[in-house]
Amino acid sequence: METVLSVLVGLFFAVGIYLMLSKHVIRILLGIAIFGNAVNLLIFTVGRIVREVPPIIPHGFDVPPGPVANPLPQALILTAIVISFSFFAFLLVLAYRAYQEIGTDDTDGMRVAEPEGESLPPLGY
């Protein structure tokens, strides 16, 4: 199981990064969404896989009676999913606003903060 997931995580990373290397903002955003899933799956797999048994203690027991899935990575990922969603939304709005103000979705055209051909700063004191 871990082997298949390792290959799948590698694929998620490759696709996410390939999209992020694009110059189009919207593809970068898609890449970031996939990248987030890749990281979550990575954390999940590192905690080892147990099939189908959620970490819930049945009634009548004080501790889980048999092997259950590792709860720790699940707790980490749960919050990570929500946070990566809110960041995704933020980036989406940022891209949208940038498109409105600058009029392009090509990162080569987004040079407001680092304009091309900047001249030497003043040499005085």
């Binding site: 959620p54 819930i56 749960l78 919050t79 999913i81 929500v82």
Partner: peptide, 12 residues
């Protein structure tokens, strides 16, 4: 607290 669920899921 005792079954699958919680604040994050409910909120979503």
């Amino acid at each position: 607290h005792n079954e699958p669920g919680g604040g994050f899921i409910g909120g979503l």
